[in-house]
């Protein structure tokens, strides 16, 4: 995939504010640029605005003020078909996998192709053969091809998350968003999923925004760390040369030991 013609800032936030109620501010005047091919880790306490920030990127939530520009289009202005076309170019991996448990693994992956299919899948019929073949190839990439015809709810958490990654890959995305993709996995599965996302993003030259809770994982995994606190960017630095205690400062609250906070938030 050629990314040469794209503007340098693939994702651009310009003074973006998001309120859920007059007095609940999730994002407070956030400005940032993400360049093509960057792997960015978002750090911050629960409720600091990480998920909200990611959902602004593909327009699942609309900003209250400010502009979000992704892949050259203004997310806030995109509606209907345009919004869907933009979302198709952005993959999203969720913390809770969000698979249809009663469908097979392969069918779950196939839903990633919905954005470029015209008809609704009518339940009785399956997806076109070329989609199913491509889905099987993506399943091979995440090492789950032999589970293709199992029900999704028979898989372990780590496996389900890899299915979700395959689903996002079937979109042939240019940007990959991941919202705490390993927060509900055991350390071993977590490492496996993170390695997979990293390898694939290098292979497919993806731009990645991933929120995480584990500071050490973030430092060994990303190119750049953005720290959020109460909806504000409090840290934005390349991983290279970033000290652990600097990263930990994102979690600091007045009079609270950051390590104690981490222990409770996992």
């Amino acid at each position: 995939m050629s990314i040469g013609h794209l503007p340098e800032a693939l994702v651009r936030f310009d003074r973006v504010t998001k309120r859920f109620a007059p007095d609940v501010v999730a994002l407070d005047e956030v400005s940032l640029n993400v360049r093509a091919g960057e792997v960015v880790v978002l750090l911050g306490l629960s409720g600091s605005g990480k998920s909200t920030l990611l959902r602004q990127v593909d327009g699942l939530q609309q900003a209250s003020s400010g502009t979000v520009t992704v892949l050259g289009s203004d997310v806030g202005k995109a509606r209907g078909t345009e919004a869907r076309a933009l979302r198709r170019r952005i993959g999203f991996v969720f913390q809770q996998f969000h698979l249809v448990g009663s469908l097979t693994v392969l069918e779950n992956v196939c839903t990633g192709a919905l954005g470029r299919l015209r008809c609704p899948r009518l339940g009785l019929f399956s997806y076109p053969k070329r989609v199913r073949r491509e889905a099987l190839r993506q399943l091979e990439r995440v090492d789950l091809a032999e589970r293709a015809f199992q029900r999704a709810d028979t898989l372990s958490g780590g496996e389900q998350q890899r299915v979700a990654v395959a689903r996002a890959l079937l979109q042939r995305p240019e940007v990959l968003l991941a919202d705490e993709p390993v927060a509900s996995l055991d350390p071993e599965s977590a490492a496996q999923v993170m390695r997979l996302i990293r390898d694939i993003s290098v292979e497919d030259e993806l731009t990645v925004l991933c929120s995480l809770h584990q500071v050490d994982l973030a430092l060994s995994w990303g190119d750049r760390v953005i720290g959020l606190r109460c909806g504000r960017v409090v840290l934005d630095a390349p991983v290279q040369g970033l000290r652990r205690d600097e990263a930990m400062s994102v979690y600091a609250r007045v009079g609270v030991d950051p390590d104690a906070v981490l222990a409770t938030t996992g």
Partner: peptide, 10 residues
């Protein structure tokens, strides 16, 4: 969440 994930695919 499933519906959200599908909307996110476009």
């Amino acid at each position: 969440g499933v519906e959200l994930a599908m909307r996110a695919t476009g």
